[in-house]
């Protein structure tokens, strides 16, 4: 079973590397942040697969931190100063 998990992890890492294209060329910062978000989510899947392939349950905790990180970085990108907010 661990071969299947490793093979799926290889495929997912290849898609992550393809998604980096959007981070590099994306015309606006929002596009780039979306690329980073996709890398984070795919990274969670890769971490979980690796955790089951190596039999290291601790990797699930790292995946949890990745999930939190996406929220933090998007908030840091889209936040504005108080006086600047028109809504």
């Amino acid at each position: 079973m661990s071969e299947i998990f490793t093979a799926a992890a290889v495929v997912l890492v290849l898609t992550m590397a393809a998604g980096l294209v959007r981070v590099v060329v994306g015309p606006t910062p929002a596009d780039r942040m979306m690329g980073v978000q996709l890398i984070g989510t795919t990274g969670i899947a890769v971490l979980l697969l690796l955790g089951f392939a190596f039999e290291m349950p601790a990797l699930a905790d790292v995946a949890l931190v990745f999930a939190l990180l996406a929220a933090v970085s998007v908030t840091a990108l889209t936040r504005r100063r108080v006086g600047q907010d028109r809504s």
């Binding site: 980096l20 981070v23 780039r32 690329g35 990274g43 990797l59 790292v62």
Partner: peptide
């Protein structure tokens, strides 16, 4: 800076490996 964030994520993946 955004590429640096992606680099940090990737580094974490390598260290998990």
């Amino acid at each position: 800076v955004m590429l640096f964030i992606a680099f940090g994520l990737w580094l974490a993946l390598v260290w998990a490996r």
